[in-house]
């Protein structure tokens, strides 16, 4: 009989304890960010999709060695370059990232020995069309410079 009533009593107490906690939480400020209206800054090391790094003249640092292409586990990078007359280095003519297959592992950046690739801070990458995710990184670089 004592156990019966003490069970009821302690049960009620435990319920009230829980209610006190939620009551306290009720008056605390909100912690969420209403996303489309406010955004948080991305951290320095955020790994977005890759991007080409330019040198002082606005040209990509890339020397078309193809290491990133080989390092990529999903085969989403395809690049091409040509050797202009009289130049020593190859010049990048095409750098396409197929973002539909990219899993943002960062192998390409790690593989690059020429400081030619970096991560962008872009994360708003929603679209209805698949073609929107075939990134022409060289074109993006030019657009940034314009």
């Amino acid at each position: 009989m004592v156990a019966y009533f003490s069970e009821i009593y302690y049960g009620l107490i435990s319920l009230l304890e829980g209610m006190v906690i939620t009551f306290k939480e009720f008056f605390k400020p909100t912690v969420t960010v209403s996303y489309p209206y406010e955004t948080l800054p991305m951290c320095d090391r955020f790994r977005g999709h890759v991007e080409l790094i330019e040198n002082e003249e606005g040209q990509p640092n890339c020397v078309v060695c193809g290491l990133c292409e080989r390092a990529c586990p999903s085969g989403c990078i395809s690049l091409a370059g040509e050797k202009a007359e009289g130049e020593k280095k190859k010049v990048l003519t095409k750098y396409v990232l197929d973002f539909t297959r990219c899993s943002l592992c960062g192998s390409c950046v790690e593989a690059c020995n020429f400081n030619a690739l970096t991560f962008s801070k872009e994360y708003n990458l929603a679209s209805r069309r698949k073609e929107d995710f075939i990134f022409d990184l060289l074109g993006r670089l030019e657009e940034r410079n314009r």
């Binding site: 939620t22 939480e25 009720f26 605390k28 400020p29 909100t30 912690v31 969420t32 209403s34």
Partner: peptide, 13 residues
């Protein structure tokens, strides 16, 4: 709104 306040969210706003 109440649930959101308890969970420290803004709720429908």
């Amino acid at each position: 709104r109440g649930a959101a306040r308890i969970q420290r969210r803004p709720g429908p706003n």
